[in-house]
Structures are given as C-alpha cells and as structure tokens.
C-alpha cells in the first residue's frame, strides 16, 4: 500500500518539522536573549554609578539603573500576593467545603469570567476606580502602587481560588472521612487534614500566580507604573517595574546603553519567572509521587 506509506511519511515529516521548528525558535529566542543580556549584566546596569551598598540601603537614589524597577516589581508582587493569597484561599476553601452546590455553581461562573478577563481590562478597571474616586470622595486621587497591586491581585485571584478548590477536592474520599470519624469539627478537618494534604498543590498554584504578577505589563501600564519614579516610599507613589521597563526600551530606546539595560532587565525577568517555574515543576513532581503512594 504505497499511498498509506506515503501519507504516513508526509504526516510524520510534518510533525517532525513542527516540533523541530518550535524547539529551534525557542532556542533562538532564549539564546539571543542570553547572548545580548549576559554582556549587559553588571553592577552598573543595576545601580549606575551609585555604590551598591548605598543603593540597597536606600541612602542614595539611583537614576539611571534598573534597581528602582527591581524594587518596584518586588513591592508589587508582595503587595498583590498579600491581598490575593488569603482572599483566594479563603474563597477556594469556602467553594470546596462549605458552599452549597447552587452557590458553588454561581461563584464558579463568576470566577471563570474573572479568569478569562484580559489583563488590559483589569487595568482599565483600575483606571475607572480612580475616575470614580475623583468624581466622588477623593478629587486628588491618581494611579499608584496600591492600585496596581489591587488590580494585579484581582488578576491572579482566580488562579488561587481554582487551585485551592481543586486541590482540596482532590483529596481521596476515604482519607477525607478520617476527619469526621475521629471527631474533628469541619474546620479542624480542613485545617489539620485537608490543607496539609493539599498544601503542595496550593503552593504551586500560588507560585504560578506570583509568576503572573511578576510578568504582567498591561495592568500596571494603566494603573500607575511610570518610566522614571525612583523607589516608591509610600503606597500612593508612582513606581517602576521590570516588565514595563522592557516595554519602554523596546518602544523608544535612544542609546546602546538603554538597549543593554533592556536586555539585562529581560534576562532578569526571565530568570525570575524561570525560578518560579522550576519551583512549580519540583513541587508537582513531588505531589505526583505522593499521590501514587496514597492511591
């Protein structure tokens, strides 16, 4: 059957080309970034000419380095996680353990809608909050670090809700029954049995959420990030962030030095998300083997 052989060959060839093409593209992308970024990475990129001790301790402002962007991103991630993680976990616990099926369905729909909302709309939401505040309570309201953190928190909230709910629901029924049969109350069952058993799953979801918070550009663009702000001192200050810095360089770089800074920041951002990715992979591998033992 030559036709059969030929069609098999052609299809396999296509599969090979697609796969090899993808690998090559990714190699090029990362290789290019490495090559350009590595040469740019040095203390001057971070701190300009300010001695690094003085910059880290905040004694001397850095104007031309990416240090303020690093700090700004860090603040943003921490603030957003502080808002989203407790809220998301509490919502996930309620959905999986307390809510009636009807309520669960409705809230799930709302969470799905939120999960599908593009980040630019989340940014627009932050912007409308400021517009509303200006019209009503606070005429001097403006976009700021806190607003960005709230919007980013809203962006990663559905991840955390979903992963908490799913991990809790994945605990096997006969393990789940241990709690009540030992005389635990519902909260004790959740707290001492279900949460420890699903902690790695939840943790990996939280890390994925943090990764999202670190990389997102569209939200902060509309809610308070600027190209030059220095290190934010208060919650209502403007701030800098790494992803936005990268975007700015791509849009309007004027010198080789700025370009180098762009490549350096891109590499740093890639390293941050890469580390988070490794952490998740590690956690998930451990989770899988654990559940294999269990079942």
């Amino acid at each position: 059957m030559p036709v059969r052989r030929i069609s098999n060959r052609v299809l396999s060839g296509f599969a090979w080309i697609a796969s090899a093409g993808l690998c090559l593209t990714m190699l090029t992308l990362i290789g290019f970034l490495m090559k350009r970024g590595m040469t740019a990475l040095n203390a001057k990129l971070f701190f300009d000419n300010v001695p690094w001790t003085a910059a880290v301790l905040g004694r001397q402002p850095v104007f031309d380095g990416i240090w303020p962007a690093v700090v700004g991103s860090f603040y943003l991630i921490v603030l957003a996680s502080l808002i989203a993680v407790p809220l998301g976990m509490a919502t996930g616990i309620t959905l999986s353990e307390y809510a009636s099926p009807n309520i669960r369905r409705w809230i799930s729909l709302a969470v799905d809608i939120l999960a599908g909302t593009p980040s630019i709309i989340m940014g627009l939401f932050g912007f409308t909050i400021i517009l509303l505040l200006r019209k009503t309570l606070l005429p001097q309201a403006r976009t700021c670090l806190l607003l960005s953190a709230v919007c980013i928190a809203l962006l990663i909230l559905p991840y955390i809700i979903r992963v908490t709910q799913n991990s809790l629901e994945a605990v096997l029924p006969h393990i789940r029954l241990i709690g009540p049969s030992c005389g635990f109350t519902q909260w004790q069952t959740i707290c001492y049995l279900l949460l420890p058993l699903s902690s790695r799953g939840i943790l990996s979801g939280v890390i994925l959420g943090i990764g999202r918070a670190a990389e997102d550009t569209a939200v902060i663009m509309l809610t308070g990030v600027v190209a030059q702000a220095g290190i934010p001192q208060r919650l209502w200050d403007k701030f800098e962030a790494i992803p936005f810095h990268i975007y700015c360089v791509a849009a309007e770089y004027q010198s080789v030095r700025q370009l180098d800074a762009g490549f350096g920041s891109a590499l740093i951002l890639l390293a941050i998300t890469g580390i988070l990715f490794l952490a998740v992979t590690f956690l998930q591998r451990v989770v899988v083997t654990r559940y294999e033992i269990l079942s």
């Binding site: 990389e215 992803p243 990268i246 891109a266 890469g274």
Partner: peptide, 13 residues
C-alpha cells in the same frame, strides 16, 4: 517552559 516566559519578552525579542 514556553508558558512561563513573560509576554513582554516575546514582544521584546
């Protein structure tokens, strides 16, 4: 790995 690469980096490169 591709899922973990930030959008802005795809654009930048």
């Amino acid at each position: 790995v591709m899922t973990s690469i930030p959008t802005v980096i795809y654009g930048f490169v």
